[in-house]
Design a binder for these strands. Structure first.
Length: 480
RNA sequence: UCCUGCUUAGCUCAGUUGGUUAGAGCAUCUGACUGUUAAUCAGAGGGUCGUAGGUUCAAGUCCUACAGCAGGAGCCA
């Protein structure tokens, strides 16, 4: 019977009145042959277990090593020491699993680096930092579902394997059941995918949006939350080959409705994490503050993590159009002193990340929603504005992370959509099903995609995206 | 993919202008101690200096290539 155990988080909330309890967890430290700091993953706070001298066999004491797993029965009493409210006086200690101290790779006293912990990602959850990060990640994921569920959205599972490469977002991972050493060939000596498992070339999804639109034009409001794959050779602190994306899609929404929802959504999930995981966030805030002490003054954040999150909750995002952004950039002293590596050449240029960072981090100092971009630099499905130069797109840029949301009002007018697809060489035959939504009861609609890991980065203050997903997939790396 | 930097003990790092047997802290092991809080104290073991070449009387140190990692850029979420 393991179910008698009480989680340490619950236990620490109780009054220690000599009650008998059973706890199970992993040894974080064993001091003085007498004090076990036991952690069970429910909180970073350890339970101090007191082993009375001579009450246990020496053999058993020797097996209480770093990360060994224990079952302990004892009585909960007020602590005689200063570091904690209560002690568990152990009456029975059972070793569930030994941990060879010479081989266990993580010595907490050594302050192992994040880079090293990535190499032992299977064990890094047993550290305070990753304990906090992944509990917060869970809270954010749960809040995503709660937010949309409470608003009556339908959670839609869009396919992981897709048969079209027309989505136009990045390099694709191919999915095939063909043998690599003897692929069937057609008369043009190309690989003959009609012989493949699905009878056509298939890939891992780069976005559920197009399928999401099919749902939205029936249910009204849907969202997806699933894995997404990009075979881009990106080696940065904010890109993964496999990441999780949330893509709501709403019928009867215009661009402004879309922006309002995105902003409300981001605020909601941040607030949920603060309300439910304040301790973890405070721990991460302290960790970040300690880390930033190593940095030169000009690279440190102006706000601590908790302040930053509070600020986002209490201040509206700045909303400007692309055209206004270009004007602000052009008129800025930063530009006039020629401090941008990429000059502001004028309307129509694509913004470089240094421009976005300057707008967000130096000029507005808060999240910014940029909207109505030139149609030339955006995707085919975005709704064309009346000026015939711009589309109803919007990106939300967050300090320190960059683009966290990309979305748009979708082009619901069949003739305009088909014309744009032709101009951009998007094969409309392959997307016949997508165009059908515009043929049969088309409606104004909009949606956005939010990169979940980037959101987790923003909330936890972790600077590398590989430290907010359990087992990161990046170019050259798919361990675990 | 491009640019820059890094790679020395299990971890985090020193290592001078190229010059004896490559160091420290922590971890580990052994012992001591016992109300500790990253416990403490004493002792011990632990290294093909990323890999392969090259220069030199002599290379951890200089040069070349490659690999891995990190940061920045591009692409994007």
């Amino acid at each position: 019977m393991f179910n008698k155990r009480i989680r340490i988080k619950e236990l620490l909330a109780q009054a220690p009145t000599g009650q008998e309890v059973v706890v199970m967890g992993w040894v974080r430290s064993f001091r003085n042959n007498q004090f076990i700091a036991l952690n069970d993953g429910s909180t970073n706070n350890n339970l101090q277990v007191v082993v009375t001298l001579g009450s246990q066999d020496d053999d058993l004491i020797k097996r209480i090593t770093n990360s060994a797993s224990l079952k302990i029965t004892g009585t909960l009493v007020p602590s005689l020491g200063k570091g904690q409210k209560m002690d568990l006086n152990a009456s029975m200690i059972e070793i569930l699993g030994d941990s060879d101290a010479e081989k266990y790779p993580i010595q907490l006293k050594n302050r192992p680096s994040l880079e090293f912990l990535r190499e032992v990602a299977h064990l890094r959850f047993r550290t305070n930092t990753f304990g906090s990060v992944f509990r917060v990640r869970h809270a954010l994921a749960f809040a995503v579902h709660k937010f949309f569920n409470d608003k009556g959205f339908v959670y839609m599972h869009t396919p992981i394997i897709t048969g079209s490469d027309a989505e136009g977002a990045g390099e694709l991972f191919k999915v095939t059941a063909l043998p690599f050493d003897n692929t069937p060939r057609n008369d043009k000596d190309e690989v003959d995918f009609t012989k493949d498992f699905f009878g056509k070339a298939t890939n891992l999804t780069v976005s559920g949006q197009l399928e999401g639109e099919l749902g939205a034009t029936a249910f009204g409001d849907i969202y997806t939350f699933g894995p997404t794959f990009r075979a881009e050779n990106s080696n940065t602190t904010r890109h993964l080959a496999e990441f999780w994306m949330i893509e709501p899609e709403m019928a009867f929404y215009d661009l402004e409705d879309n922006m309002n929802l995105a902003e409300e959504f981001i605020r909601y999930i941040i607030k949920y994490a603060i309300d439910n995981n304040r301790e973890d966030l405070e721990f991460l805030a302290q960790r970040l503050a300690d880390e930033e002490k190593q940095l030169p003054q000009d690279k440190r954040s102006e706000m601590g993590l908790m302040e930053k999150l509070g600020f986002v909750l209490n201040n509206n995002f700045e909303r400007i159009t692309y055209t206004e952004a270009i004007d602000i950039l052009r008129e800025s002293n930063h530009n006039k002193k020629k401090k941008f590596q990429y000059p502001i050449t004028g309307w129509g240029m694509d913004l470089q990340s240094e421009h976005e960072r300057w707008l967000v981090e130096k000029h507005f100092k808060k999240p910014v929603i940029l909207s109505n971009y030139p149609k030339e630099i955006k995707a085919f499905y975005m709704r064309q504005n009346d000026d015939e130069k711009t589309v109803a797109a919007m990106d939300i840029l967050a300090p320190g992370i960059g683009e966290i949301v990309g979305g748009s009002q979708r082009e619901e007018r069949l003739d305009k959509l088909e014309a744009r697809m032709k101009e951009m060489h998007v094969p409309s035959e392959e997307l016949w099903w997508y165009l059908d939504t515009r043929r049969f009861g088309t409606v104004p609609h909009a949606g956005f995609g939010l990169g979940f890991e980037r959101m987790v980065q923003f909330v936890t203050g972790m600077t590398n995206i590989r430290d907010v997903i359990a087992f990161p997939r990046t170019p050259g790396s798919a361990e675990f």
